[in-house]
C-alpha cells in the first residue's frame, strides 16, 4: 500500500470497518460452531477452509485501522 494514498478515515468509513469486523467475527463463530458439531468430514473441511479466509479478512480490516490511526485528528475538525 502506498502511503501517499492514505487519508484520515471518515466517520462513515470507520463505521463500515467496525461493522465489517463484526460480520467477519459472526461468520467465523458460525463456521466454528458448525465444524464443532458436524459428523460430516466434508462439511468440517468446508468450514475450516472458510474460517481461514474470514480470519484473513478480519486481519485485513484490523490492519486498515492501524494504517489510518496516525492520520486521525485528535480534535473534531
Amino acid at each position: 500500500m502506498q502511503s501517499n494514498q492514505m487519508q484520515a478515515l471518515s466517520g462513515k468509513e470507520l463505521e463500515y470497518i467496525a461493522d465489517s469486523i463484526s460480520n467477519e467475527d459472526l461468520l467465523i463463530k458460525q463456521l466454528a460452531a458448525t465444524a464443532g458439531t458436524t459428523q460430516n468430514s466434508t462439511v468440517q473441511g468446508i468450514c475450516v477452509q472458510q474460517i481461514q479466509s474470514h480470519t484473513h479478512h478480519m486481519d485485513m480490516l484490523v490492519q486498515l485501522l492501524h494504517q489510518h490511526q496516525q492520520y486521525a485528528p485528535t480534535q473534531p475538525q
Binding site: 494514498q5 487519508q7 471518515s10 468509513e13 489510518h68
Partner: peptide, 12 residues
C-alpha cells in the same frame, strides 16, 4: 459493496 462505493480514501 456499499462500503466500497461510499469510501473516500483510495486505500479503504
Amino acid at each position: 459493496t456499499t462500503a466500497a462505493t461510499e469510501s473516500n480514501c483510495p486505500t479503504v
